[in-house]
Nucleic acid binder design. Structure first.
Lengths: 346, 346
DNA sequence: GTGAAAGCGCTAACAC
DNA sequence: GTGTTAGCGCTTTCAC
């Protein structure tokens, strides 16, 4: 056993690979080992200690696949990021990535593992059912509705443990956590207007539902102030394409607008760079506001006025609601307030 | 069956949950269904088509836990991010997050799922063995060596399918993919020197092994040019703490240095903001270079001179090497070249 | 408090 | 080509 031991201690994976091996060494039955290690149900204290000692000594780790199969639960939560028409969109979208980081921490804290999947729904209509049906996950968190709102609604009817990050729409059936985008849009536009802007534009892809809500909020503000409608300047999210598109928009409309509300801070930063390059003063000639309050918002010159989403709170909300749904509860959606962060671009 | 069907088609999870259910409906044995769905070994074409039709109709998905348990492989690759003493470091480290995004895409392309874990080694000395021994993953990719170099070396001796993103050290035993940090550091310093800097400083935590190599590269350059040694200005990675620390460093040393090489673009951007706030001209008074070439490097004012890491190539390399190791091959480490991207801060 | 036995859903020999 | 059988490693009745 001593030779074994040295190997075991180094690698943590030795001759004691199964609960049965361990049972043999401890001179008990596999069932008892299972009970001892699970910590519940009554096991003689001495027996338990002996088993635990041997387990530790040999670096024994129970096989989670087997346990999962038997108990019909895996201890794994699926996190899926659907990539919409603009397939590469999220790859550099630090917002989603930051959310993912917080989610990982929060799930870990709750004792769950995280299985990550990025899917392109247009290549794979079955993306959500496939993930759910894989048997690998106890529940699923969808990051972003992309253009898959209806698909998600369908699934929500028959599958409980799912929570979605995204936009809330009156009467929807899936449980969502997200910022009040319409409110956020309104706050941004109001700030631009208060800073003196009268002809507003919205920079971003308004076919994305969250962005559409931000746009709508901005329209609300403009309407209320009797200003002309906000002009939509569509862009993709990937920095390379967006940079070009922004340049074109500015070239075409720079004279006609004096306030830009960008759908994300990333777009706002690109826009700022482009305006700077063309000698347009910000906030002198054009006021600018972003959305998200990512770290970059503090680092632009001048620093960016934006609308803050509380990403950590979002992650906590997603996990909390999911765990409650896993426990059988029905849960309402959670709408987080949007908060204006006034810096120097508006 | 029609009632079933409508329910099934909506949710994709109906009465046909197991291969045995499906076998009963198709009038064959479970074994045949397994073979038909696996696509290999000979199955009568008509039988196969029938089985496939029923499977599709009922939205059947094989249970991957069961399959994994039986085949002793899961189709899942573990990705683990060890968080060193500076626990929160990576949470906002867009470099690791970007790498993760590319990894997810690359693993998906290869038909693998990704299980993500962030661990705090100081709370959990057993982090790597536990993950490997869980039975949930076929192989593991470690993102960043943090302060766990020795732990990783130990594991590498007894466990094949592991590849690490990080720094390469002469004679190490674990397979690593990473940028040539020392070369990168040298390139950055040479650029600062060519731009006229003579008294260099390195901004970042030199106890992190990758950063230490960048620092060493900078020292090489300074020594070769007969300049005084590069001054180390330690910082944490989290933006909040780093911002303060940078401010303090600049207050203390602004007059004594004329070139700063920051360990990452994030730090460089913070540094630029701070220099700007204090009225120090860049590159006039102080030359500045970063590392990574993240999107933010193009967006600072003025845009940042930096050293590019090819993140996409890194992700491809990690996955490629891992799959080869999974196939039993021995593999060498992969060192990617560093490339200077000259912009306007040096 | 512990052992024996059945079985989670799937795959892979081995028969035929 | 297909059915039968024996597990993968674990948990959980059910006895005792």
């Amino acid at each position: 056993m001593n030779e074994d031991k040295s190997a075991d201690e180094k690698t943590g994976r030795g001759t004691v690979r199964t609960i049965t091996d361990l049972a043999r060494l401890a001179g008990v039955s596999p069932g008892t080992v299972s009970r001892a290690l699970a910590g519940k149900s009554l096991v003689n204290t001495k027996t338990r200690e002996k088993i635990e000692a041997i387990a530790r000594e040999h670096g024994f780790r129970p096989n989670q696949m087997a346990s999962g199969l038997r108990r019909q639960k895996t201890g794994v939560i699926g996190v899926v990021i659907p990539l919409g028409h603009d397939s590469r969109q999220q790859i550099s979208d630090s917002f989603f990535m930051t959310l993912l980081g917080f989610l990982a921490d929060e799930l870990t804290r709750q004792g769950y593992d995280l299985m990550l999947r990025r899917v392109v729904p247009e290549n794979d209509a079955d993306w959500l059912d496939r993930f759910i049906g894989s048997g690998m996950i106890d529940g699923v968190i969808v990051i972003g509705q992309s253009d898959q709102f209806d698909r998600i609604e369908d699934v929500a009817d028959g599958y409980g443990p799912m929570v979605v990050w995204g936009n809330h729409t009156e009467g929807q059936r899936h449980c969502v956590v997200g910022t009040d985008n319409r409110l956020g849009g309104r706050l941004a536009a109001e700030r631009l207007i208060a800073a003196g802007a009268k002809r507003l534009a919205f920079l971003g892809d308004t076919t994305a539902i969250e962005f559409a809500a931000r746009f709508a909020g901005a329209q609300d503000a403009a309407r209320r102030m009797d200003l002309p409608p906000v002009m939509a300047l569509p862009t993709h999210l990937s920095p390379e394409r967006a940079a070009e598109e922004i340049a074109a928009h500015i070239a075409a409309h720079a004279g006609a607008i004096d306030g830009i509300f960008a759908a994300t801070d990333t777009l706002a930063a690109l826009c700022l760079t482009e305006l700077h390059a063309r000698g347009v003063a910000v906030p002198g000639d054009i006021k600018l506001a972003g959305f998200d309050d990512l770290p970059i918002a503090r680092q632009t010159v001048p620093p960016l006025t934006t609308v803050r989403q509380d990403i950590a709170a979002g992650a906590r909300g997603l996990v909390d609601l999911l765990l409650r749904r896993l426990a059988g509860e029905q849960t309402e959606s959670l709408i987080l307030p949007a908060q204006l962060v006034a810096r120097q671009t508006a």
